[in-house]
Design a protein around this nucleic acid. Structure first.
Lengths: 140, 140
DNA sequence: TTCACCATCATTCTTTCGGGTGATTTGGCA
DNA sequence: TGCCAAATCACCCGAAAGAATGATGGTGAA
């Protein structure tokens, strides 16, 4: 979290620096305020989207009313939050690569998580994992 | 989508207008570039977060407890009995080889059936096929 | 501060899936 | 009887999944 804030500030500082350089080095002094605002807006919109996704992906939206998460099973089987996220995306029919993209991690990481999941759920295939997870009320 | 882009541009225009007003109306002429950038950065970061969230909302899939086989869908999609059997076993988390053993056919046959199933269900992976089949009430 | 655990990523290797294509057989039906 | 759809099987190939192992950095508890 601190790291992210730091990086965020760093990005802002770098952007300011970049603009100063454009201004002074290339003697382009008549850039309008709108131009600056445009650049900054685009940059920070992208950054905002990224940040927004990164910090809200953990918030799991469960709208199915007759689903009660079985945290006992989760505790008993030592299933971590991250593994649960992978499990949910897996249950949505996503491929490992798609899960990796969605969670902003590498394919290998997803594979590691899923491998650990399989052993914790005592299964050997993703389809079985989904089945069992639904039986155990780990996913809706 | 067009509406969003429009609103987005409108927000940008309003922000520029706001800044101009701050600049001229209150005679605060010595605001630094960093100040402007800061304002815009904060504003568009928030906007970016909002946009990012808006387009990644989860869709809700209700799973009804009592299952009634949807033979209309089966007819409409021309899904054969054998394909249905494969589908059910697939949903139980079985691998193609296991399905083949269970149905006393060869692995290739199961693969053919599943391939045809995928195209009939308009999916490309077995996990998605299971998902969709449940939504269509083809399997419990 | 040390330790256990989690999250991350990499590499290698094997197995499984899935697409594409084509062929044969079989049961029902016009 | 001939046609049609289904079921069956084969082969090739590339992509994806999964197993096994090792490594690193962060964090929270003891």
């Amino acid at each position: 979290m601190k790291k992210t804030i730091f990086l965020y500030g760093l990005a802002l500082a770098l952007l300011v620096l970049l603009m100063r350089m454009i201004e002074y080095r290339f003697l382009v002094r008549d850039l309008t305020l709108e131009f600056y605002i445009g650049i900054v807006a685009i940059f920070f919109t992208a950054l905002g989207i990224w940040v927004g996704l990164k910090f809200t992906r953990k918030k799991v939206v469960m709208i199915n009313p007759d689903f009660h998460f079985n945290d006992k099973e989760q505790t008993k089987r030592n299933i971590s939050k991250r593994e649960l996220e992978v499990l949910e995306l897996m249950a949505q029919g996503l491929a490992n690569q798609e899960i990796a993209d969605k969670l902003f991690v590498s394919l290998n990481t997803v594979k590691t998580h899923s491998s650990n999941l399989f052993s914790k759920l005592e299964v050997s295939r993703r389809t079985q994992a989904i089945q069992k997870a639904k039986e155990l009320n780990l996913i809706p």
